[in-house]
Design a binder for these strands. Structure first.
Lengths: 220, 220
DNA sequence: CAGAATTAATCAATCGTTTGATTGAGTCAA
DNA sequence: TTGACTCAATCAAACGATTGATTAATTCTG
C-alpha cells in the first residue's frame, strides 16, 4: 500500500475542515478565501462545493467538528441534590468548588492543541455574536453549567431572588471567561501572570467565589 | 440656503464615518463593501478613497471617532492614596464601590444610542482580537481602570502577591464585562433579568466584590 | 477663474461557484 | 480473465459577480 506523502489526514474532507478551522479562527469567515483554505489543505478549491455545498456548508462543518473536538466536561460534576436534602449545603459547597475547577480547566486546557484552540475560539465567537448555532451551543456547552451553578447558588443563598442568583452566576462565569475574551489586554497588563495557571487560577477563583457568596470559612 | 434633505449630518466625512460605524459593527470589516457604506451615507464610494485614503483609512477613522464617542468616565474616580495614608483602607473601600459603579455605568450606558453602541461594540472587538489599536485602547480605556483597581486591591489585601491581585482584578472586571461579551447567551437564560439594570447590577457587584475581597461588613 | 469636492465610469484583482475532463476503483456479463 | 460500463472523486480552467481602487469629467465654492 502507498503511504500518505505527509502527515496530513488522508481524508480530503477532514483536511479541508481542519485547515478551514485554523484559517476561519485566524481571519474570520469573510477574511479568508476558498483558494487559501484549499491550498492549506492541499486540495482543490472545487472540493469545497463538491463535499460541503459551498463556503457556508464548510463553515457549518467546521463548527460541528468543533463541537466534537471540544467535549464539555460538565458531565463530571456530581448532581446537586434538592435543597431539602440533609447535606444539601455541604454538597452545594463542593459543587461550587468542582464547578469552577472543571470550568476553568475546560477553558484553559483547550489551548494546548492548536486545532482545539482554534475550534474553541470559533465556538466562543459564535457564542458572542449569536449566530444560527446559538441554541445548540447554549444547550451543549453553557446550559449544563448554568443549571449546575444555579442549583448550587440557590442552596447556598436561599434568601436571594432570581435576579441576584443570575447576577452571581454571570459574575462567576465572567471571572473565568474574561481570559478567553480579552487575552491580549490581560497579557499586556499582567506580564508574567499570563497565561494563567489552571490550578492556581481555579483555586483562587474558588476561594474568591465562596467568599463572594458569603459561605466561605471565616478567616480566609 | 438649502436645508439638508434628511437628518443626516451635512459633512460627508461624518456621514461616511457614522454609516461605516454601524455597518462595520454589524458585519465586520470584511463583511461590508465600500459601495454599501457609501450608499448608506448617501455618498459616492470614491469619497472613501478621497477623504480617508481607502477602506482601512476609513476603518481607522471609525475607530478614532469611536474613541471620542465613548469617553472614559474613569477620571471621575477619586485618586487612591498611598497605603501609608491614615485613611487608606476607608478610601480604598470607597474606591472599589465607585470603581464598579462607574465601570458598569460606562459599559451599560453606551447601549442607549445606536451609534455609541456600535462604536462600543467595535472597540470591544478590537480589545478582544488585539489589532493595531491595542496599545491605544489599553492606554485610554483599560489602563486607568486597572491602575485604580490595583491600588485599591493592594491596600485592602496587602497580604496578596501580584498573582492574586491580578486574578482578583480580572475577576472583578470579568463579572461586569461578561454582559458585553455573551449578551445573547445571557439573554437566552436570564429571561426578564436581561438587559441588567445598571443600578441593581452595580450594587450587587459591589457587595459581591467586597465580600470576595474579604473586606465586607459582617452579616452581609 | 482656481481649487476643492463630488460624480459616473472603469480598472485589475479576487471572490464563490460552475463546468467539463480525467482518474481509478468497483461491477458484471462474456 | 477480460473488456465495457458505472460512478464517485478530483482536477484545471473559466464563469459572472463583486471587491477596493482609480480616473477623468463635472459641480460647487470662495
Amino acid at each position: 500500500m502507498v503511504q500518505p506523502l505527509n502527515d496530513l489526514p488522508h481524508d480530503i474532507k477532514l483536511r479541508l475542515v481542519e485547515a478551514a478551522t485554523l484559517l476561519f479562527a485566524e481571519k474570520g469567515f469573510d477574511g479568508v478565501g476558498l483558494r487559501e483554505i484549499a491550498s492549506a489543505a492541499h486540495a482543490n478549491s472545487a472540493m469545497v462545493a463538491y463535499h460541503f455545498g459551498g463556503k457556508e456548508g464548510l463553515y457549518l462543518a467546521v463548527l460541528r467538528a468543533g463541537f466534537e473536538r471540544c467535549p464539555s466536561q460538565v458531565a463530571q460534576l456530581a448532581p446537586i441534590p434538592l435543597p431539602s436534602h440533609p447535606q444539601a449545603k455541604e454538597l452545594a459547597l463542593k459543587g461550587i468548588q468542582d464547578h469552577i475547577r472543571v470550568f476553568v480547566d475546560e477553558l484553559l486546557m483547550r489551548d494546548c492543541d492548536p486545532l482545539m484552540k482554534a475550534s474553541s475560539s470559533l465556538l466562543m465567537r459564535e457564542l458572542a455574536v449569536g449566530g444560527p448555532f446559538l441554541e445548540e451551543l447554549n444547550r451543549d456547552f453553557m446550559l449544563p453549567y448554568f443549571t449546575h451553578l444555579r442549583d448550587c447558588v440557590r442552596i447556598l443563598r436561599p434568601d436571594w431572588g432570581e435576579m441576584e442568583t443570575l447576577y452571581a452566576m454571570a459574575a462567576i462565569h465572567g471571572s473565568a471567561m474574561i481570559y478567553k475574551f480579552i487575552p491580549a489586554i490581560i497579557k499586556l497588563n499582567a506580564g508574567s501572570a499570563f497565561p494563567p495557571d489552571s490550578v492556581s487560577l481555579s483555586r483562587f477563583l474558588t476561594d474568591h467565589t465562596l467568599r463572594a457568596l458569603g459561605v466561605a470559612p471565616q478567616g480566609a
